[in-house]
Simulated assay, not measured.
Amino acid sequence: MSTRTFRVIVRGVFDGLDPEQRAELLARAGEHDVLRAAFTAEGNLTYDLAARAAFTFRFLDTGEAEEDILEATERAESAAKAWLTERGYGHKNLRSTADDLSRAPLGKRQRREAARRSA
C-alpha cells in the first residue's frame, strides 16, 4: 500500500480580539503573510488582519487509505483550534477542505515525464 499525501486548509475568522491581541497579531503579520504560505505538518498560519479578520491554516498530512483524509482533516482542525486557544484568540466559522494529492490531475510537465517513462 502506498502513502497518500493530504493537503488540508482550515479557514476561520478571528472573533472578539482585545486591543492587545490585535496589536500582537498585527506586529507578527509579516511572519504570517500569504506570500510565506506553505503546507506543513505543524500547520502554517496566514492572515491579513489589517484588511479583514479572516485566517487560514495550511496542513500537510499523510495516510494509507483514501478514508484517512477524514482523520487528517480532524487532526488539522484540532491543531488549528489548539493553536488559537493556547494564545487566547477567539475564533468562529471554522471550515475545512482537504485534497488527496494522489488523486490530483497531473500537470503538463508531469504528464510528459510519465509518457517518457512508459515509452
Rank of each mutant, 00 (worst) to 15 (best):
M1V: 10
M1P: 14
M1Y: 10
M1D: 10
S2D: 14
T5Y: 09
T5H: 12
R7F: 13
V8C: 06
V8K: 07
I9Y: 08
R11Y: 03
G12P: 05
G12V: 00
F14A: 06
F14R: 04
D15Y: 08
D15W: 09
D15E: 14
L17N: 04
L17E: 04
P19I: 04
P19M: 04
Q21N: 05
A23G: 08
A23K: 15
E24N: 13
L25V: 02
L26P: 00
A29V: 05
G30S: 10
E31R: 13
H32F: 04
H32A: 07
H32T: 02
H32C: 09
H32Y: 03
H32L: 03
D33L: 04
V34W: 12
L35K: 13
R36M: 12
F39E: 05
T40L: 13
T40H: 06
T40G: 02
A41P: 11
G43T: 00
N44R: 14
N44F: 06
N44A: 07
N44Y: 01
T46W: 01
Y47V: 01
Y47G: 01
L49G: 05
L49Q: 03
L49T: 04
A50S: 15
A50N: 11
A50Q: 11
A51K: 14
R52Q: 13
R52E: 14
A54L: 08
F55M: 03
F55A: 03
T56G: 01
F57R: 00
F57T: 00
F57Q: 00
F59H: 02
L60G: 06
G63V: 04
E64F: 10
A65P: 00
A65V: 07
E67K: 11
D68S: 08
D68G: 10
D68Q: 05
I69H: 04
L70I: 14
L70Q: 15
L70K: 11
A72S: 11
A72W: 03
A72N: 00
E74K: 13
E74C: 06
E74S: 10
R75N: 12
A76C: 07
A76T: 01
E77V: 15
E77R: 14
E77D: 06
S78L: 15
S78K: 15
S78D: 15
A79D: 08
A80C: 02
K81L: 08
K81D: 06
L84N: 03
L84T: 00
L84P: 02
T85Q: 11
E86A: 15
R87Y: 01
R87A: 08
G88A: 06
Y89D: 02
G90E: 06
H91V: 01
N93H: 11
L94T: 00
L94Y: 01
L94I: 01
R95C: 09
R95M: 10
R95K: 12
D100Q: 06
D100A: 05
L101G: 05
S102T: 13
S102H: 12
S102V: 07
S102M: 12
A104T: 10
A104Q: 14
P105I: 09
L106H: 05
K108V: 15
K108H: 12
K108C: 07
R109F: 13
Q110K: 12
Q110L: 11
R111Y: 03
R111E: 13
R112H: 09
R112T: 07
E113V: 08
E113S: 11
E113Q: 15
E113R: 15
A114E: 15
A115M: 12
A115K: 13
A115N: 10
R116S: 09
R117M: 12
R117C: 04
S118N: 10
A119D: 11
